[in-house]
């Protein structure tokens, strides 16, 4: 007997009392229960040490340039809108990890943001790129359109496709491992900037 059959047989034997379970009650606030509040999103992002900049699309490139040192290298995914790219930005075309790690910052778009938790989700679309590019540089800059902001976790789940590679980001890398206090800055980017567009 294969272990697969063995385990499935064991599970069936363990359930010989045939437990009947009613449909789960879902009395919590469902998707669509409330409109998103951008101020809540900003408040939550700042609370977890992300820096928020409210800018127009036309100001993105200059704002990003101002976040890196003079002549700093900004990595972008291949599908990032041209107008957002700061001068001298280089696009990922399957770069080796050490090249990615050498970038001073990475600039991506996002898929969804959750106001209530201050979370931004990346789904590896062309304007966000492979997961690794937003991981190794020390500064991650995310451009967020207001229509990408939802109120709650159920709203975000409803919008996302689980079969895409997803990265849920809530503030910069942090740990609670020392005396259970949150400390920012371990392995992921130590600085998270969110450019919240004022012009959709």
């Amino acid at each position: 007997m294969s272990s697969r059959e063995l385990i499935l047989d064991r599970v069936r034997a363990a359930l010989r009392d045939a437990p009947v379970v009613a449909e789960a009650p879902r009395d919590y606030r469902p998707a669509g229960a409330a409109p998103p509040d951008l101020d809540v999103l900003v408040d939550r992002l700042v609370d977890y040490k992300a820096e928020v900049h409210r800018v127009a699309s036309a100001e993105v490139a200059a704002t990003v340039a101002g976040l890196v040192a003079e002549g700093g290298a900004v990595l972008v995914p291949p599908g990032l809108p041209e107008m957002w790219r700061p001068e001298g930005a280089f696009a990922d075309d399957g770069l080796a990890p050490d090249r990615i790690a050498a970038a001073d910052a990475v600039l991506t778009a996002a898929a969804v943001a959750v106001a209530e938790t201050g979370t931004i989700v990346l789904d590896a679309s062309p304007d966000q790129g492979r997961r690794v590019i937003s991981l190794l540089p020390d500064v991650h800059v995310i451009v967020l359109r207001p229509d990408q902001v939802v109120a709650s976790v159920p709203d975000a789940i409803a919008r996302l496709d689980g079969r895409r590679p997803l990265t849920w980001i809530s503030g910069p890398s942090a740990t609670s491992d020392i005396e259970l206090n949150r400390v920012e800055g371990v392995h992921g980017p130590r600085h998270l900037h969110v450019l919240l567009l004022t012009d959709g």
Binding site: R44, Y48, V114, E116, T117, G118, T119, R131, G162, R163, R164, P165, L166, T167, W168, I169, S170, G171, P172, S173, A174, S176, L180, R182, G188
Partner: peptide
Amino acid sequence: TGERMNPYTTMWT
């Protein structure tokens, strides 16, 4: 951890 959301969650299929 007593956070509204943990810093990172990765999902893959």
